Structures are given as C-alpha cells and as structure tokens.
Lab assay of single mutants.
Amino acid sequence: ELELEEVDLYRMNSQDKLGLTVCYRTDDEDDIGIYISEIDPNSIAAKDGRIREGDRIIQINGIEVQNREEAVALLTSEENKNFSLLIARP
C-alpha cells in the first residue's frame, strides 16, 4: 500500500533549481516508475523538506509521468514557476 502525498514547490525565477535528480529503479524490470535519486541540499525541494530520496513521482502538474525524459522536461521547464508533484512512498 503506497502513501500518496502532493507537494507544491514554488520558485521565484526560472534560475532557481528544484534540485531533484530522477532515475529508474533498475532492479525490477516491471517497475517503470520514476524515482528521486538525489536532492540537492541547497535547493527548493531540500528547503521544503517533504520530498525524500526514494520517493516515486506519479504526476507533475497533473501530468502522469511515463518516463525519465518526460519528468526531466517537466521539472526543468522554464515556463513553470509552480510545481505540483504527486509522490508515492511505501
């Protein structure tokens, strides 16, 4: 049973970094989820404190993420200042 949490992050300008590194968990081929492998200690996500390494990203801004490229594109989008992440953890 996964616990879901919605985390809203806000950046003042497009130079601010959310600070999330995303990856696949390669140990299970059936698991195509996108996971947070690293959080930059000086980033918006780290200061917010709710997202943890190992969390799975389900949605970004209401869009279900299917692959790492999509997640990276959404997280690094210059147009977005508000990010709503739906994350899951066991």
Rank of each mutant, 00 (worst) to 15 (best):
E38H: 14
Y35G: 04
E79S: 11
L9Y: 03
L86Y: 04
R89I: 01
K47L: 12
A46C: 05
P90T: 02
R52K: 09
F83C: 04
E79M: 07
S43W: 03
S77K: 10
V7M: 04
R25D: 15
D48F: 02
D28V: 11
N42T: 09
T26N: 15
K17S: 11
I60N: 01
R56T: 11
P90H: 04
E5I: 15
I34Q: 03
D40C: 10
L9C: 02
A88D: 10
S84F: 06
V72E: 13
I51H: 00
K47I: 10
I63V: 14
A71C: 11
P90G: 09
A71N: 02
R56D: 02
P90Y: 03
T26M: 15
N82E: 05
G33H: 15
R52I: 15
R25I: 15
R68G: 08
P90L: 02
L74A: 12
E70Y: 03
T76G: 06
G54D: 06
L20W: 02
K47S: 12
V22S: 03
D27V: 10
R50K: 09
N13H: 14
D48C: 14
I51R: 00
E70D: 07
D8S: 05
E5L: 14
D40T: 13
G54L: 04
N13A: 15
A88C: 03
D31L: 13
S37L: 08
R50E: 03
L75F: 07
N67Q: 14
L20F: 06
T76V: 07
E70P: 03
E1M: 12
V65F: 14
E69G: 05
D16A: 07
Y24L: 12
E69D: 09
I58A: 09
E3L: 09
R11E: 02
D16H: 07
E38P: 02
L20D: 00
Q15P: 09
V65L: 11
E5A: 06
R50C: 02
I32N: 02
R68A: 13
D28G: 10
E38N: 15
V7Q: 00
L20R: 00
D30M: 07
E78Y: 09
D27L: 13
G62S: 12
E29V: 12
I87G: 01
A88R: 13
I63H: 12
R56V: 06
E69P: 08
M12K: 11
V7P: 00
D30P: 15
G54Q: 08
E1V: 04
R11I: 15
E3C: 11
I39F: 02
R52A: 12
T26H: 11
Q59A: 12
L86M: 07
I44Q: 05
D48T: 06
I57V: 09
N67R: 07
E1T: 02
L4W: 06
G33W: 12
D8M: 01
I51M: 09
N80M: 14
R50Q: 12
G49K: 14
D30N: 09
K47V: 05
R68V: 08
D30F: 05
I51D: 00
D16K: 03
P41M: 12
Y10G: 15
I44E: 03
R11L: 15
E78A: 10
L86C: 13
L9D: 01
A88N: 15
N67E: 12
R11S: 03
Q66W: 10
D28H: 13
I58F: 05
Y35W: 03
V7K: 00
Y35M: 07
L4N: 03
V65N: 05
G19F: 00
E78P: 05
L20C: 03
V65K: 02
S77G: 10
S43A: 09
N42A: 14
Q66M: 14
I87A: 04
T76L: 08
P41L: 08
L4V: 11
N67V: 15
R11K: 04
E3W: 04
E38F: 14
A46E: 15
T76P: 01
E5Y: 13
I87H: 01
K47Y: 12
V22L: 12
A46T: 07
N13C: 04
G49S: 10
A71R: 01
D28I: 08
Y24A: 11
I51Y: 00
M12R: 12
L85G: 01
D30S: 09
E3V: 07
A73L: 10
L2T: 10
E6S: 12
